[in-house]
Design a protein around this nucleic acid. Structure first.
Lengths: 332, 332
DNA sequence: CCATAGTGCCGGAACCTTCCGGCATGGCCT
DNA sequence: AGGCCATGCCGGAAGGTTCCGGCACTATGG
């Protein structure tokens, strides 16, 4: 027996199933009176329209999928991103399914209305397999070499702009010679490279000597210390911008061990996946707002699904700058 | 005209849809010869069985859902956990859908075969709403006060055992007086409390004075420094165990600033969501293996779905201990 | 008073799969 | 030869929804 159907409702009210359906979804011609009665009855018995039947009939799935590549698995950025996607999708009555490494039932992603791929590389077999399908596909974060005819939209963070914003902001606070410490770019899509470009760009417009160092993504404390010493040894260096949040926090401790007064004679700033992760340190944050990023990606995909034949749509997501111990904060 | 159906296949082969269906899913009676022909043809045209139709007919959804409460959003633990769930679910041909804060279509989670709730508290409105539904429900991580009749299974990390294991291991390496620094337990399910219990338990069996400090989850550097000084000031303290990974890494730097030789006269260890996150520090890790945890939770739910009337099943997930700079590592 | 349009409601088909019962055919046993 | 079973295949119904076309009835305009 299971949950009540539209037919149960119709029998109960002594009207036809068509009328019930029309009343509930606002289609067809139904008198206001009948509509009210039907809606009331539906609420009473807790009627919920059978999803599978709707899908079967309508030939759509009311679901989107998200692919997070395994390589970025344990970065804290992606969970809030995913939840942002899910929450926004729910707003549109879409479910979010997480794409696994191996296809479900031999061919999982045939059964969604669209796919979001975040920070993946083209070589990823899952990405390859997604490309071969025909559902609308949106990437979050840059993905070099993506075949244009299979891409429906992109949303990314404008690292150049972001870099300029935070460095300008720091300059206004007295910084003259910021250094950059960033992770070695692992693959072709890497934001790390864009960050470095943005930094050099800023340095040249400001006519300041560039001082950029790269490090392995997971440096030992000795390595980190070495890089820090290298960066601050350059004459005049009065600030360091970091590419990852956890490194920045470690650096704060190391630098104060080395005698620097972080926040006073040395300013620190870092990309962060959430302001909270900076704890209560003296590090300025460039909050990437992953949750909102996810929401925006979800909106983009939705727009693409609604309007499939439109041109590829490119959007940007804005980070948010926060300085510690002051109320100064501005969105770029 | 979308993708080919079983009927297209039947027409094409000049046989009945029933035979095609039987051939593909191994039911009914079909000659080996026919089965081969059908399978070959299916592969040729890229036939994929319509999910909605299967669901409608079979009254099941082939999907499970995961709820990650927003409060833990930006801990790096949960993404690998979720991916573990998804990958394992895929193994069983289940999709994983991420539960949003707000119900999809007014009543999302009616359309899954089971739900995993991870580290949530009973008071969470989404949890409340999930409880009201009748799908099998499994919790990962302890959830106090959960109505037993609505719970189908639990999998959690045995913090007491884990605590003993790592402390024993450290003791074998010469540690005699370990201190504990853990986050203030935020809610009733908190692993943090279990960790403290495990620690005290170990201390009393070993007859060692307990030396446990709690800190806010996101302490400032000053707070952290204060706590560290407090902990190591106790006479004989030669090791510190931490409840969160990022704190441990910060602490390493702070402690060496304070003149301690981490890894030599002071040992550090920490719970981590992944070994990788410890970078290459001198901190020993208690890797919670979130990906494998997710897989195990997925397996548990699957077992529960297959066997609904069984008694509540309780399982444990094992962490893995790793010491830096040595090859010594053992699973507990 | 007839033609026309509008309103409120309804039956039936379609979406694609699974599954139950049934129908030939052919072989075996007695 | 007659009964029985196994084999290979098939038709039809069901599952819950949406949507097209249609029917009866009322109101309006000429």
């Amino acid at each position: 027996m299971g949950s009540p159907t539209i037919i149960d409702l119709a029998n109960h009210l002594g009207i036809s199933k068509t009328t019930v359906a029309d009343a509930l979804r606002g289609s067809g011609r139904v008198s206001e009176e009948t509509r009210r009665r039907v809606q009331e009855a539906a609420r009473q018995v807790g009627y919920v329209s059978n999803r599978a039947a709707r899908q079967l009939r309508g030939n759509l799935t009311e679901a989107i999928a998200l692919y997070v590549p395994p390589s970025v698995r344990n970065m804290s950025f992606y969970m809030p991103f995913a939840l942002g996607v899910a929450d926004q999708a729910a707003e549109y009555d879409y479910d979010l399914t997480l794409i696994a490494q191996r296809p479900v039932g031999g061919h999982a992603w045939a059964s969604v209305d669209g796919v979001i791929v975040v920070d993946a590389v083209l070589a990823d077999p899952v990405v390859q397999s997604l490309i071969r399908h025909t559902v609308p596909l949106v990437t979050a974060g840059q993905m070099a070499g993506f075949p244009a005819d299979r891409l429906s939209g992109t949303i990314e963070i404008d690292y150049t702009k972001m870099c300029h914003s935070i460095l300008d902001e720091m300059a206004q606070r007295g910084v003259t010679h910021p250094a950059l410490i960033s992770p070695q770019p692992a693959d072709e899509h890497s934001w790390s490279r864009q960050l470095v470009d943005g930094y050099h760009d800023w340095c040249s417009t400001r006519n300041v000597p560039a001082n950029a160092v790269t490090l392995p993504a997971f440096p030992s404390t000795t390595e980190l210390e070495g890089a820090l010493l290298g960066a601050v040894s350059q004459s005049g260096t009065d600030a360091v911008l970091f590419g990852w949040q956890d490194i920045a926090i470690r650096a704060e401790a190391i630098l104060s061990r080395l005698g620097f007064q972080v926040g006073k004679n040395l300013q620190l700033a870092s990309l962060v996946s959430s302001q909270e992760n900076l704890h209560d340190t003296y590090v300025a944050g460039l909050d990437l707002r992953p949750y909102e990023f996810g929401q925006a990606a979800s909106r983009l995909l939705r727009d693409v699904i609604e309007n499939p034949q439109a041109a590829i749509s490119r959007r940007h997501h804005d980070a948010k700058i926060t300085f510690p111990k002051t109320t100064a904060a501005s969105a770029i």
